[in-house]
Design a protein around this nucleic acid. Structure first.
Lengths: 251, 251
DNA sequence: TGACTTTTGTTCGTATATCGCACAATATCG
DNA sequence: CGATATTGTGCGATATACGAACAAAAGTCA
């Protein structure tokens, strides 16, 4: 690609949109400039453009995103067949297990939920398609990272802020790499309250008919209800069953 | 706003992202140019920019969006407090009713799901936050349109493609306006299989403590399970209860 | 309160990058 | 293989980004 085939104004604008997130529903021009590391004048133009197009509101001081930006993200969910294919399988799985079932893909250092069948809400976090969690401490993340060449997994870990969400969280890169090997060998990953106290989950990889890893699915359950050890005996067969069914329909 | 405060390269790029959707998971440069009505060279630069940034994949012929674009849309869901505030109320509502409960806002001619507590999947369509439905034939859409000044509602209807999804769908603008008046008077809207055969739903408006309409919530149920008439007696009290609870916590 | 400092928003001229056109190259198909 | 459609490229005209300077608030402290 040539230098001139890159629209930097567009790239800058996308960076500005991403500056809104988690902790930043309202951004002043200066806030956004700091977060994006762009010039204030440039950020201002991007924000005014967003406002003009209806993607943002402006009260003269702060900018806020409008629901219209969901059109952008949703273009993916609507356009890609994967979530739609997975959904009914997750529904079935969730029903049989009596617990929430989800599917995710890897995006950088995070896993990204692309479909979910939720039973009762047990986590403090509200997960929906589009939600993200750090890969290193999530069961689906372990499975997805384990499916990568070890060098790539290391690179991703190096870029991750490995923080201990609970006392049980593994934060040592070497320990994680060892865990990935175990996951690869046994074909599933179990997380015992590493993300949130009281929450266990088990995940298996989803491959297409050519054996290429494309996603992961999991079942999450309250630790009070199912111990980490029980997760395997109780839910692994169901996950394997879904995994096998999906391998046949995914190209 | 001055002419020069608008970054057209950014606006064009966003238009290109939106070209992906529903029926368009894979777009060639020419496809995208036709859909966006932009010059091929321009679209090509935008697409290559998206690919360079990891928002799209390019196989030399077709572009596809990657999950990364969900970051953009999700910036809204993560940044705005409304979905997070609504979610637990919808969970409760859904549990009490034993049916799916959702919340949406109006975006142009469509309603946009911002939160959802789903029970079993009864619709052929898979709805998640970010999903859209035409406003004129959805219960929440009726409520949201009924909350607008009649002139605005007419304008939106004029921009809508009023198609009969089922034999029961109301497609006559005047009939719809009359229905909006009824909805406004009675404080709720019922849809009897206008969107999809076999599906009924009932919606109420959600106002903040200043009485300003900001969203709508609904309950959907299979027509086989609950007739349209039963929807009111069975679910309206629950919806009213949630509506009252939300009025107290929304500013 | 009022003068001073700091932060934030806006404007402007200019160097530079992007747009869109026309043409060239390549792929697709009968 | 020729016809048609699609994609890639060079170039002049135009629009945008940059950085600094200015204006306007907001904060600070005596």
């Amino acid at each position: 690609m040539r230098e001139t085939d890159f629209v930097s104004g567009f790239a800058r604008g996308l960076k500005v949109i991403e500056a809104f997130g988690e902790m930043h529903q309202r951004l002043s021009i200066t806030d956004a400039a700091k977060l994006t590391d762009l010039d204030r004048a440039t950020v201002r133009r991007s924000l005014l453009t967003l406002a003009e197009l209806g993607y943002a509101d402006y009260d003269g001081k702060f900018f806020t995103l409008t629901p219209k930006v969901l059109r952008l993200g949703h273009a993916y969910l609507a356009a890609t067949p994967l979530p739609a294919i997975l959904q009914p399988h997750l529904d079935q799985l969730s029903e049989k297990a009596g617990q929430s079932a989800s599917a995710s893909v890897l995006d950088g250092t995070e896993i990204l939920y692309i479909a979910r069948a939720s039973q009762r809400r047990v986590m403090s976090i509200n997960l929906t398609p589009g939600s993200r969690l750090p890969a290193y401490c999530a069961s689906m993340g372990r499975v997805l990272l384990a499916g990568l060449p070890e060098g790539e997994a290391r690179t991703i870990l190096a870029r991750t802020e490995l923080k201990a969400n609970t006392p049980r969280t593994i934060t040592d890169p070497e320990e994680l790499i060892a865990e990935f090997r175990r996951v690869r060998a046994q074909g599933y990953a179990v997380i015992d309250q590493e993300l949130e106290l009281g929450l266990c989950s088990i995940a298996v990889p989803i491959e297409n008919d050519r054996g290429h890893l494309i996603a992961a699915i999991n079942i999450g359950a309250p630790a009070a209800h199912t111990s980490a050890a029980e997760m395997v005996t109780r839910y692994l067969p169901l996950l394997k069953e879904t995994q096998a069914a999906l391998r046949l329909v995914l190209r």
